[in-house]
Design a protein around this nucleic acid. Structure first.
Length: 462
RNA sequence: GGCGGCGUGGCCGAGUGGUUAGGCAGGGGCCUGCAAAGCCCCGUACUCCGGUUCGAAUCCGGACGCCGCCUCCA
C-alpha cells in the first residue's frame, strides 16, 4: 500500500484508489509565457518521480498535466513582444518540452491545452450560472464562494477568516473579495471565444477543473501541485466541481518550493532563475538528485553550490556504473519492478527502498540506502565477491532508474589525439618508464582528462 | 490579524525517545610505481529556557529567529 501526505487531512494516509491497480493523477502545469524557472523544474521532477514510482510498483498510471495557453500573462507578453498570443504560447511551450526532455521528465499520458477545452468550460459556467452559484458582472462571470458549504477546506480555514485576511482589492460588483473570475469578458484585440453569457476567455481556475475531470473523470485519485497552488487555485477548482455536483480529487498532494536564499522563488518577487539556463551548464541529473535528496514537501535551495555538491555525489554513482558496466536506464521510459530479476542482496535492497518510497515518497532515505548499497557493492568487489557485488550494483542502478535517474557507465568519447596519448602511456607503463607515463598523464590532464589506470590499461574520462 | 511550516555537526540534508542517516568537503590509513577510482577509520551536531522521563535533538510549554499561504505564482 502506498501512503502519501494528504493536504486536506494534513497527515500521511493510504492512497486509496478509485479503481484497483490504476492511479489517475493530475498535476497543474505551466502557463507558457516565459522560460521555465527552477520552481517548475522542482515540481515536475517531484511528480515525475511519484509517477515513476507508482508505475514501478505495478500501478497503471494515468498522468495528466496541462498547458495553460491563454491567460493574462500570455496576453501581456504578446503585447510586449508584438506577436500573437498563439505565437507566445507556441514558443514557450516548445521551450517547456525542451527543458522537460533535458530533465528526463517523462511526457504526461495527456497534456491538454486550455484552449481546446473552452467549449466544456462554457458548459460548466453556464450550469453554474443556471444554478445561481455564478453571477455576471460588467467584466465577466464570477463564482460565489459562499455557495460552497465547505469552502476553505484546502486552505484549512473557514470562509470568515479567509475573508478577513483578503488582500485582493475591492471590486464593487463582487459579492465577496474571495469570489473569483470564471470568465473574463472580451476586450478589443484580445483573443476570445463565443459564449451565451458574452464572448470572452476562461479564468485559470476553470481551465484546470474542466481538464482534470474531462480526462480523468469524476472522483479521480490524486491532484498535485506546488504548495502555493493549494489556495486559492486548488480550492477554487474544487469549489466549482462541488458546486456542479461532481466528485473531485480523492487525495491532494503538494510539493515544497524552491528557495532563493531565505525567500521563496516566485513571480511576484521576480527572483527566479531560468531552468533552461541551468540545464545549459549542468548535468540535468544533478538537479534530479538534488530533488531526490530532500523530501518533496521541504523547501530546497538550488544554487551553484548545492548543484555542484550533487554533481560530485553523482560522479560517485557513475563510477559505480562504470566499474560494473551497469545498463543505462530511465530517460523517457518508465521502469517496472517486474521486469528486473531480484534476488539476494538486491532483493533486500529493493524491499528496504520500497518501504521508504511507499511511505510518503521518502526519497532522501531511499537515496541514503542506495548510496550505502553502492559502498557495499564496491566493498564486496574489492573483497573478490564479484557475483554478489554485481547483483547489488544492478539493483542500485535499477532503483535509481525507477526514480528517473540514469547512471552513466559509458565512457566519454575519446578523440584520436587523446587515444594516441593513452597508447603511448600504456607503452611507457609497460616499460616502467614512470617519468614518461607521468608526463603523458599531465598532458592528458591539460586536455581535460582524468586518468585512471586499470587492469585493462589507461582509462580516461572528463 | 487568521492558518501552516521550519531552526541539526564546515556545508547540503534525513531521522527516531536510549544504538552510525546519507552526500560533499576535511584528516588518517589501505590499495597504487605515483595517482585516480574504491575500501576502512575519524567529527560526537541538533536555536534558547523550562517541564515530562531512568533517559529527549526526538514529547509538552514558553521564548527568540526565519519562511510560506490568505493577490499572480509550481
Amino acid at each position: 500500500m502506498i501512503r502519501l501526505f494528504d493536504s486536506v487531512h494534513a497527515e500521511v494516509r493510504d492512497l486509496t484508489l478509485r479503481d484497483d491497480g490504476r492511479v489517475s493523477m493530475y498535476v497543474c502545469g505551466p502557463t507558457v509565457y516565459e522560460l521555465p524557472h527552477l520552481g517548475h523544474g522542482r515540481f515536475t521532477l517531484v511528480w515525475d518521480v511519484a509517477r515513476r514510482w507508482f508505475t514501478f510498483q505495478g500501478l497503471d498510471v494515468h498522468f495528466v498535466s496541462n498547458i495553460t495557453d491563454i491567460d493574462d500573462n500570455i496576453i501581456a507578453r504578446a503585447l510586449r513582444d508584438g506577436v500573437s498570443e498563439a505565437e507566445v504560447a507556441r514558443v514557450y511551450e516548445n521551450e517547456w518540452w525542451e527543458a522537460m526532455t533535458r530533465l528526463g521528465v517523462a511526457r504526461p499520458t495527456d497534456a491538454p491545452h486550455a484552449t481546446q477545452y473552452v467549449d466544456q468550460m462554457v458548459e460548466l459556467i453556464s450550469s453554474l450560472l443556471a444554478s445561481g452559484v455564478a453571477y455576471p458582472t460588467s467584466d465577466g462571470v464570477y463564482f460565489d464562494v459562499s455557495r460552497v458549504a465547505d469552502y476553505g477546506l484546502l486552505a484549512g480555514q473557514p470562509l470568515d477568516s479567509l475573508r478577513a485576511g483578503a488582500r485582493v482589492e475591492a471590486n464593487d460588483e463582487k459579492r465577496s473579495p474571495l469570489d473569483f473570475a470564471l470568465w473574463k469578458n472580451a476586450k478589443p484585440a484580445e483573443p476570445s471565444w463565443p459564449a451565451p453569457f458574452g464572448d470572452g476567455r476562461p479564468g485559470w481556475h476553470t481551465e484546470c477543473v474542466v481538464m482534470s475531470l474531462g480526462l480523468l473523470g469524476d472522483g479521480f485519485d490524486l491532484h498535485c501541485g506546488g504548495f502555493d497552488l493549494k489556495f486559492p487555485h486548488h480550492e477554487n477548482e474544487r469549489a466549482q466541481a462541488v458546486a456542479a455536483g461532481r466528485a473531485f480529487a480523492r487525495h491532494w498532494a503538494h510539493n515544497g518550493w524552491v528557495m532563493v536564499g531565505t525567500e521563496k522563488m516566485s513571480k511576484s518577487l521576480n527572483n527566479f532563475t531560468s531552468l533552461t539556463h541551468l540545464l545549459e551548464e549542468t548535468d540535468a541529473r544533478a538537479y534530479r538528485l538534488l530533488v531526490l535528496r530532500s523530501h518533496y514537501r521541504s523547501p530546497i535551495e538550488v544554487t551553484p553550490a548545492t548543484i555542484a555538491d550533487a554533481e560530485r555525489a553523482l560522479a560517485r554513482l557513475d563510477a559505480l556504473a562504470r566499474r560494473f558496466a551497469l545498463p543505462a536506464l530511465a530517460g523517457q521510459s518508465l521502469e517496472v519492478k517486474s521486469s528486473f530479476h531480484w534476488e539476494g542482496l538486491g532483493q533486500g535492497l529493493l524491499e528496504r527502498v520500497a518501504a521508504k518510497l511507499d511511505d510518503d515518497l521518502d526519497t532522501p532515505l531511499a537515496v541514503a540506502l542506495l548510496f550505502d548499497a553502492a559502498s557495499s557493492a564496491n566493498s564486496l568487489a574489492d573483497a573478490g565477491d564479484e557475483d554478489s557485488a554485481r547483483g547489488l550494483a544492478l539493483a542500485v542502478a535499477a532503483l535509481f532508474g525507477a526514480l528517473g535517474l540514469a547512471l552513466e557507465s559509458a565512457g566519454d568519447e575519446v578523440d584520436e589525439a587523446s587515444a594516441a596519448l593513452v597508447r603511448q602511456r600504456d607503452q611507457a607503463r609497460a616499460q616502467k618508464d614512470w617519468a614518461e607515463a607521468d608526463r603523458l598523464r599531465t598532458e592528458l590532464a591539460a586536455l581535460g582528462w582524468t586518468v585512471e589506470d586499470s587492469e585493462s590499461g589507461t582509462q580516461i574520462r572528463h
